[in-house]
Amino acid sequence: MDKEPKTHRWLPRFTIRELLLAMVAVGAVVALFAQRQPFGRHKMLQSLDPYSTVVKICSDVGVKVQNTSSQQASGVVFGGGYCVESDSEYSELGYADATTKVMPKLLGHIRDAIESDDGEIVGSGISGSTDESVVSRFSLQYRRGQIRGVARAYAFELPEGGTRILVLMDEY
């Protein structure tokens, strides 16, 4: 009798160890992507308009300002973080008024905004006086859960008179 050879289907065969290693590898990749998912934007960054804040502070302290130029940008940065940038020049705001009246109030405003949204300030750097009555620049590092952030502001005296105020905020 002619017996035809049986055709065997080819099926991959794995050991338990190989399957376990494959599961660990897949789990590690999934965990990596789940950890890097974009997070909820800090409420403060959604509501912060540095230019309007500076103009309001100037109005509150009785300093007249005329904005000669202003640029503001915000958005998502690589890796899922957020940023806010504001660069404004004020022709009628003198540098002395900016560092003694506006910047200390801006520092307090940003500090209060961070803390009111359950943020914790974990580091700071302030250039000016120790009692914060004169502030030419500041930096506040904060965290809120797993989110980390830094808020920075600088006042520059313009050669033709007036002041430039730069505000940068990053969350990651």
Rank of each mutant, 00 (worst) to 15 (best):
I110Q: 11
M103Y: 00
V29E: 04
C83W: 07
Q37C: 00
R111K: 14
H109P: 00
S127W: 08
H42V: 06
V55T: 10
S91T: 11
S69R: 11
F78G: 08
R41Y: 02
S116K: 11
G108L: 12
T99W: 03
A113L: 11
R111Y: 09
L19E: 10
F78K: 15
K105A: 11
A113M: 10
N67K: 08
S116W: 05
I126M: 15
T53C: 02
K105P: 01
Y90L: 02
K43T: 02
E18L: 03
K56N: 05
I57A: 04
R111H: 04
S124K: 11
K43G: 06
A22G: 15
D112L: 13
K64Q: 12
V30T: 10
A28E: 05
A34W: 14
G62M: 07
K43W: 00
P12A: 13
S69Q: 12
V122S: 11
F33L: 13
C83K: 11
I110S: 03
M44W: 05
M103A: 05
Q46P: 00
S127V: 11
G75K: 01
V55E: 07
G27H: 04
A73G: 15
P12F: 05
R17V: 12
Y51G: 09
V63S: 00
E85C: 05
V24L: 11
K43V: 03
D118M: 13
P38R: 07
T15F: 10
G123R: 07
V84F: 01
K43N: 04
T100V: 08
A22L: 15
L107F: 14
K56G: 02
R41H: 09
T99M: 15
V76W: 14
D118C: 12
A31L: 14
S69M: 09
V63D: 08
H42W: 14
A73L: 14
K43Q: 01
S127G: 07
G27M: 15
Y90E: 02
G80R: 01
S86K: 02
T100Q: 11
D118I: 10
Q35D: 12
F14N: 01
T100P: 06
K64R: 04
Q71G: 03
M103F: 03
P50L: 04
T100Y: 05
S91G: 02
A25H: 01
